Amino acid sequence: MAILPFEGELGDRVAEEVASQFTSTGAYSIVEPGILSPADASTYTASDRLDEVLAAARQRDIDAVLTGEIIESTAPKRSSLLHRAGLKGDDRRTLIVEYCLVDTRTGETLSKNTVRSLEPVADSSADATSSAEVEDSLIAQCSHEMVSRLSPKRCAVQALAKCMWSDRGVISVNKGNRCAASGNWSDAVDSWKAAVEANPHNDAALFNLALAAASQHEYDKAEQYAMRALRARHSDDYERGLENIRKQRAEFEERRTVSHP
Results as ranks from 00 to 15, higher is better:
residue 4 L to W: 07
residue 6 F to L: 12
residue 15 A to C: 06
residue 18 V to T: 13
residue 18 V to Y: 09
residue 19 A to Y: 08
residue 20 S to L: 14
residue 26 G to K: 04
residue 33 P to R: 11
residue 37 S to E: 08
residue 39 A to E: 08
residue 41 A to F: 05
residue 41 A to T: 07
residue 47 S to W: 10
residue 55 A to F: 12
residue 56 A to F: 15
residue 57 A to N: 06
residue 58 R to P: 02
residue 59 Q to G: 15
residue 62 I to L: 13
residue 66 L to F: 06
residue 74 T to F: 10
residue 74 T to Y: 06
residue 77 K to I: 01
residue 78 R to T: 09
residue 81 L to W: 06
residue 81 L to A: 13
residue 85 A to F: 11
residue 87 L to N: 11
residue 90 D to G: 03
residue 92 R to Q: 12
residue 94 T to W: 13
residue 99 Y to K: 06
residue 106 T to K: 03
residue 113 N to W: 03
residue 113 N to G: 12
residue 114 T to L: 11
residue 115 V to Y: 01
residue 116 R to P: 04
residue 122 A to D: 02
residue 129 T to F: 04
residue 129 T to R: 15
residue 132 A to L: 08
residue 132 A to Y: 06
residue 132 A to E: 14
residue 133 E to N: 13
residue 133 E to H: 07
residue 134 V to L: 13
residue 140 A to W: 02
residue 141 Q to P: 01
residue 157 V to M: 00
residue 160 L to A: 14
residue 163 C to N: 14
residue 167 D to R: 07
residue 169 G to C: 11
residue 171 I to V: 13
residue 173 V to M: 05
residue 178 R to N: 12
residue 180 A to I: 08
residue 181 A to E: 15
residue 183 G to K: 08
residue 184 N to G: 02
residue 194 A to C: 05
residue 195 A to K: 02
residue 203 D to C: 03
residue 210 A to E: 01
residue 212 A to P: 02
residue 217 H to R: 14
residue 225 Y to N: 04
residue 231 R to P: 00
residue 234 H to V: 05
residue 236 D to K: 12
residue 251 E to K: 00
residue 257 T to D: 00
residue 261 P to N: 01
